[in-house]
């Protein structure tokens, strides 16, 4: 062991600690947006940061989109199959809820990607 070995180790640990605690690399900052499309046309952008309720009126009926605790879901609709209502709340980028009968799509933009769906070796 020489003096520089110790220096290298200490500097590396200090840099790692600094990066960790500075929060500079914090990737898990929320900030996703739930975008509501009707028939492919953007109707509304709802930030996942604040709880809101949005009523989508379409020519076929309505859907009620709710943002709560950073997640978006459709809590009510008058479509026949109710697939959108039964869909789980979404929060990760690219996740979406589709109501086929009403041609309504709620998709998450920005924010975090579902970290499970990546493979690193």
């Amino acid at each position: 062991m020489k003096r520089w070995d110790v220096v290298v180790v200490l500097v590396a640990l200090a840099v790692a600690g600094g990066l960790y605690f500075s929060g500079l690399l914090r990737a898990d900052t929320p900030g996703g947006v739930a975008v509501v499309y009707v028939n492919g046309v953007e109707k509304a952008r709802l930030s996942l940061l604040q709880d809101t309720e949005y009523r989508v009126e379409t020519e076929h009926g309505y859907n009620i989109v709710v943002v709560k605790d950073g997640k978006a879901e459709i809590i009510d609709a008058d479509c026949p199959d109710k697939i959108c209502v039964n869909h789980k709340p979404i929060s990760f980028r690219k996740e979406s809820i589709t109501c086929l009968p009403h041609k309504v799509v709620v998709e998450i933009e920005g924010g975090n990607e579902n970290s499970v769906d990546a493979v690193v070796q």
Partner: peptide, 27 residues
């Protein structure tokens, strides 16, 4: 490479962890 392949910067939060592990295993 992970940043290039995965096309996003989510993995950068691993940097401190992997630096410490690099020090430990390197030692």
């Amino acid at each position: 490479v992970a940043i290039i392949i995965l096309g996003r910067t989510v993995v950068v939060y691993l940097v401190p962890v992997l630096m410490v592990s690099g020090v430990a295993t390197g030692f």
